Amino acid sequence: MTNTITCVKTPAFLSGISVLTTNHVVYTSDFKDPRIATYGSTSVMLQQAAERTKDQPGAFVASLIKQLIHIGTDLYTPCGIQIPGANLILSNTQVEKLTGYISAGDIFKVGTSAKLADLINLLISTLHMLMYGNLYSARTRKIVLYSNMIATGSNVIWVGSNMYAGNEDAIKQLDIGGLIVTVQRLIYDTEYIRRIKEEFVFGGFNKKIQGDGLEDISWD
């Protein structure tokens, strides 16, 4: 929107401190071969962008779409995209090394995988509850928990066996998002099932003392 580029640099006189710098971008006469030119003002750049957005909202939308496309095409390239904000803390060399191990695409992949696992769990839970009602909520959670454990366990075993066989790239196939969801459900669902069982046992015991019958419901 403003023919500028904002980077994070560490000036020589500020060793170890990263600052934002805005530079003008120049092109050839046919608007090709973009190059970084002289320094500009970051505050003026933001002001000009805001004014253009007010006068030409379509320009902002077009710029946003182009940036999203640019990020999307680079997200899973071999070089990857660095974690946002990493260069505010680390040096360029450190950021490059970090991106080689984990990039923004990896984090996005984990988040997407976790949300997909949550969606599948929700669908299974909804279908089971529609068939059997709220009375079997503990059993529903057991089914979802066991299915998550089987899926995650299979993935871990597959990745582990391939890495043991010498395929180190197999680690990239580890479903970290699904693993996180499984651990969360293992913690919270186990506690939920324990609490429901406890309420049922003590509630049934009170009824038995009062002379009422204790309904026999299987938890398996």
Score class of each variant (00 low, 15 high):
Lys9Met: 04
Lys9Gln: 07
Lys9Ser: 01
Thr10Gly: 02
Thr10Pro: 00
Ala12Gly: 03
Ala12Glu: 03
Ala12Gln: 04
Leu14Ser: 03
Leu14Cys: 02
Leu14Gln: 02
Ser15Gln: 07
Ser15Phe: 06
Ser15His: 02
Gly16Thr: 07
Ser18Glu: 11
Ser18Ala: 13
Val19Ser: 06
Leu20Pro: 06
Thr21Lys: 15
Thr21Asp: 06
Thr21His: 08
Thr22His: 13
Asn23Pro: 00
Asn23Glu: 06
His24Asp: 06
Val25Phe: 06
Val25Cys: 07
Val25Lys: 09
Val26Thr: 09
Val26Phe: 04
Tyr27Trp: 15
Tyr27Lys: 07
Tyr27Leu: 10
Tyr27Arg: 11
Ser29Trp: 04
Asp30Lys: 07
Asp30His: 05
Phe31Lys: 07
Phe31His: 09
Phe31Met: 14
Asp33Ile: 09
Pro34Tyr: 13
Pro34Val: 14
Arg35Trp: 11
Arg35Val: 12
Thr38His: 04
Tyr39Ile: 08
Tyr39Asn: 11
Tyr39Leu: 08
Tyr39Met: 08
Ser41Pro: 02
Ser41Asp: 04
Thr42Phe: 03
Thr42Met: 06
Ser43His: 11
Ser43Met: 12
Val44Ala: 10
Val44Leu: 14
Leu46Ile: 15
Gln47Tyr: 04
Gln47Val: 05
Gln47Glu: 11
Gln48Arg: 15
Gln48His: 11
Gln48Ile: 11
Gln48Trp: 05
Ala49Ile: 04
Ala49Cys: 12
Ala49Leu: 07
Glu51Lys: 13
Glu51Arg: 15
Arg52Ser: 08
Arg52Ile: 13
Thr53Gln: 15
Thr53Arg: 15
Thr53Tyr: 15
Lys54Gln: 09
Lys54Met: 14
